[in-house]
Simulated assay, not measured.
Amino acid sequence: MSLDSESSSSTKDEELRTLRWYHRDLSRHAAEALLLSNGSDGSYLLRNSNEGPSYFSLSVRAKDSVKHFHVQHVDQSYIFGFNQFSSLQEFVSHFANQPLLGSDTGTLIVLKSPYPWCVEEPSIYEAVRVHTAIQTGRTESDLVANAPSLGTKEGYLLKQGAVIKNWKQRWFTLQRHELKYFKDKMFEEPIRNLDLRACSAVQFDYSQDKVNCFCLVFPERTFYLCAKTGVEADEWIKFLRWKLSQNRKGR
């Protein structure tokens, strides 16, 4: 390696250490899971690419999907599409000016908000950390390190009745130590609010006549829930178990 190449590599590494939305070895699948679970339309992050040490991937959420774009480091420049940037700061500043990206379907994607790595949250996909919330803004300086956690989850699950053992679809939301369920997504008032600090266990359940079921064990009752898929059930279980572990640490 020449002295110029070594200098270029050193400068690149130093810049990457200052970039709050550089997720290093995050995989493509994990980036998609993270952005779809906790990002919003226009959320983006930078990660290493499998193409080689001089390549990066910019992952961007576009509504209900995630698009990936190559960024190549050549000498002391970053090549992104038809654009060339002399530094990562110039790269960030370019994003601040509402650039548009054309996806493979011709859809224009606006890069709205960087997805930072700065706060540790639960592992739900390949030891991925779910991260901090970010203030709506378009530059790295807009990041809010102490913003409310995005360690939340919501979705439809089937719930078994306490007395009549029938199954009804309910809308569940999980935030902090509260698991609430509603008659439907449109309802503002929950049917019940479960305090996870009182929950002793979350586990798969194979005693029902349905698949993808799991249960939450409380002193007064065990709640039986079913997800649409095994993957979804596994996500809920991992997330709920992380919440329980955090509650125990806080005692």
Rank of each mutant, 00 (worst) to 15 (best):
residue 2 S to M: 06
residue 3 L to I: 10
residue 4 D to H: 10
residue 7 S to R: 12
residue 9 S to Y: 01
residue 15 E to L: 08
residue 16 L to N: 02
residue 19 L to F: 14
residue 20 R to W: 08
residue 23 H to K: 07
residue 23 H to F: 01
residue 31 A to V: 11
residue 32 E to V: 09
residue 37 S to L: 14
residue 39 G to H: 04
residue 43 S to G: 01
residue 51 E to A: 15
residue 51 E to S: 13
residue 53 P to W: 11
residue 55 Y to L: 02
residue 56 F to R: 00
residue 60 V to P: 00
residue 60 V to D: 07
residue 61 R to M: 12
residue 63 K to V: 12
residue 64 D to T: 11
residue 67 K to H: 11
residue 67 K to P: 06
residue 70 H to S: 15
residue 73 H to A: 15
residue 76 Q to L: 11
residue 78 Y to V: 08
residue 86 S to Q: 15
residue 95 F to E: 01
residue 100 L to G: 10
residue 105 T to L: 15
residue 106 G to T: 08
residue 108 L to Q: 13
residue 111 L to D: 02
residue 119 V to F: 09
residue 121 E to H: 14
residue 123 S to Y: 15
residue 126 E to Y: 02
residue 127 A to N: 13
residue 129 R to P: 10
residue 130 V to H: 09
residue 131 H to V: 08
residue 135 Q to I: 08
residue 138 R to E: 09
residue 139 T to R: 14
residue 141 S to L: 15
residue 145 A to T: 10
residue 147 A to C: 09
residue 154 E to C: 11
residue 160 Q to V: 01
residue 164 I to F: 14
residue 167 W to M: 04
residue 169 Q to S: 14
residue 173 T to P: 06
residue 174 L to N: 02
residue 178 E to W: 11
residue 178 E to L: 15
residue 179 L to S: 01
residue 191 I to G: 05
residue 192 R to E: 10
residue 194 L to A: 10
residue 194 L to N: 06
residue 198 A to H: 10
residue 202 V to Q: 09
residue 211 V to T: 12
residue 212 N to V: 08
residue 214 F to D: 00
residue 215 C to Y: 01
residue 216 L to A: 08
residue 217 V to P: 09
residue 219 P to K: 01
residue 221 R to T: 11
residue 224 Y to I: 03
residue 225 L to E: 00
residue 227 A to H: 03
residue 230 G to H: 13
residue 230 G to F: 11
residue 231 V to N: 07
residue 231 V to D: 10
residue 235 E to R: 01
residue 236 W to F: 05
residue 236 W to R: 01
residue 243 K to I: 14
residue 244 L to T: 03
residue 245 S to R: 14
residue 247 N to M: 11
residue 248 R to V: 12
